Amino acid sequence: MSNTDFQTAAKQEEAYLRAVHPTPEDIPGCMKLFDDFLACNIMGVQLKSLYRYGHMSVCDHKLDDFKFCMSIKNMHPEEKRDAWIHRRAEWWARRRLERSSEDVWDIRTEPLKDFPPARPDVTSSSTSTIE
């Protein structure tokens, strides 16, 4: 697991999101977020989740995103972008720091010693000649 604390992870995520979404037009609109919520609830998505994870897909966070979007709808576009980026950065930071099914291996901080192993020297005496 990473040694990064939440505040550091949130700042890293926020910097990344600001680079990916440089203008207010780059953040998703409320209708897009509502469509994402509806798409999460369709039968195909629910069945895939049931098959893969053994439970129905949980779409509450998508509804929360839509509600948050509606709550900042009347803000100035730059303030709206900042609020959205801050919220998403915290979400990604929590997701990054929590355990998940993808946490199978520990991240190495240095390479393995003597890996890969050295290959034995192949000499010409070991090869036979065909006459």
Rank of each mutant, 00 (worst) to 15 (best):
K113I: 08
L50S: 09
S125Y: 14
T109C: 04
A10M: 07
D36C: 00
L97M: 08
I72S: 04
W84H: 02
F37I: 06
W105T: 00
P28L: 10
M31Q: 14
S49P: 04
V45E: 15
I130A: 10
F34H: 09
S57D: 08
D114N: 15
L63Q: 12
R95F: 13
H76Y: 04
R119A: 14
S126D: 15
H61D: 13
I42K: 15
C69G: 12
P111H: 00
M31F: 07
I72F: 05
A93L: 01
D64E: 15
M70S: 14
S100M: 02
S49D: 12
L33W: 01
V122Y: 07
F37K: 06
L17M: 02
L38Y: 06
C59I: 02
R96F: 03
Q7N: 13
W105P: 00
M43R: 13
H55Q: 15
D82P: 00
D65A: 14
L112N: 09
W92T: 02
W92R: 14
F66E: 05
K67T: 14
D5C: 06
F6W: 04
M31W: 02
V122I: 11
P22C: 03
T8K: 12
L112V: 05
P120F: 09
H61Y: 10
K48V: 11
W91G: 08
E78C: 00
D114Q: 09
R18F: 03
M43F: 15
V20N: 01
F68W: 08
M31G: 03
P117F: 08
S49V: 03
L97V: 05
F6T: 00
R99A: 10
E131P: 14
W91F: 13
I130G: 01
V45L: 04
M75E: 15
V58K: 14
G44W: 05
R87A: 11
L112G: 08
L112A: 11
D35C: 06
D35Y: 10
A89Y: 01
F37D: 02
E90D: 07
S128L: 14
E14N: 06
K11I: 11
L112C: 04
T109Y: 09
R18G: 05
N3K: 12
F115C: 01
A39P: 00
E25W: 00
P117L: 12
I27C: 02
R108M: 10
Y53V: 08
D5I: 06
Y51S: 11
M56Q: 06
E13P: 02
W105I: 00
A118S: 12
A39N: 15
P111S: 03
R88P: 00
T109I: 04
S2T: 10
D35M: 14
D36P: 00
V104N: 07
D64H: 13
D60W: 11
R95G: 13
T127H: 12
L63R: 11
E102C: 02
E79R: 06
E13Y: 07
D64A: 15
G54Q: 06
H61V: 06
L17V: 04
F66D: 06
P117R: 10
K48G: 12
A10E: 09
Y16I: 03
R119Q: 13
K32E: 11
Q12G: 07
G44E: 13
C40L: 00
R18Q: 14
S124L: 15
I27S: 02
P116C: 01
Q7R: 11
S125C: 10
E90L: 09
A83L: 05
F68L: 06
M75S: 11
L38M: 14
S100Y: 03
D60P: 03
